[in-house]
Design a protein around this nucleic acid. Structure first.
Lengths: 116, 116
DNA sequence: CGTTATTGTTTCGGACCCGTTTCATTCAAG
DNA sequence: CTTGAATGAAACGGGTCCGAAACAATAACG
């Protein structure tokens, strides 16, 4: 069944999730960083810096720095590609999976609370 | 009818909208700023700096600076409350309404594209 | 009045993000 | 082997955000 939202529902959903994020003391990831994180977890691997930059239409340093930040938070991990040591492979972590699981739960909860 | 999302749908939705934001060259509003903007447009007025800070559980300078930024973008406007000149009333603008209308359309479109 | 409270703004310091450019490493092709 | 291409990371400069604290301006109260 397709997911159909009305305008006020769409914006209310966004407001509710943004508020949860702010108040939960969640690390403040930029939209670019969140898009990178979600792509790593939702799209099939392998994920390289170049590939992510191309997929999201951002520059490579944006991806590198996002991986620095999210790596420090243990949300993703980096590994050299042993078959082509120029590449860096971005991989998922337990912490990242838990983080996004919780994030998804927030979205689902806010969606369920929406007025009809 | 309640809006029920599955976890993968919720995260896909967020990914799609984040990507649209980044690529559309939309002004980079933080989550706090977006939450403030949405609250001004979705919750009934009047909106004061103090009221917004309390509603979102953020500090007053955060609200003031968000209004600076979004005011420069014409997304909201400020007016002194003539009945109590200590208060500042935050009001909606045409540009802000159009901005959020377009933003809502992006969310709706991404929701409709979600796999079943 | 003069004092206290409330409201919003500004300042300060630190941290982060972004785009561009430059650099180091690694592969591939002549 | 040497040269050139590709990949990711680092450096630079500008801008923004944040929290805490100090600062006006206005109102309320004794």
């Amino acid at each position: 069944m397709a997911v159909n939202l009305r305008p006020s529902q769409a914006l209310r959903l966004w407001q509710g999730v943004c508020l949860s994020e702010v108040n939960a003391g969640m690390p403040d990831l930029s939209h670019r960083q969140l898009a990178i994180l979600l792509t790593v977890y939702l799209d099939p691997p392998p994920h390289t810096v170049r590939g992510l930059a191309a997929a999201l239409n951002v520059t490579k340093p944006v991806v590198t720095r996002a991986l620095d930040t999210m790596g420090a938070l243990k949300l993703v991990s980096r590994h050299r590609d042993e078959e082509d040591r120029r590449n860096v492979l971005v991989k998922r972590t337990i912490e990242g999976a838990l983080f996004l699981e919780r994030f998804g739960d927030v979205i689902i909860a806010k969606a369920k609370e929406l007025p009809i």
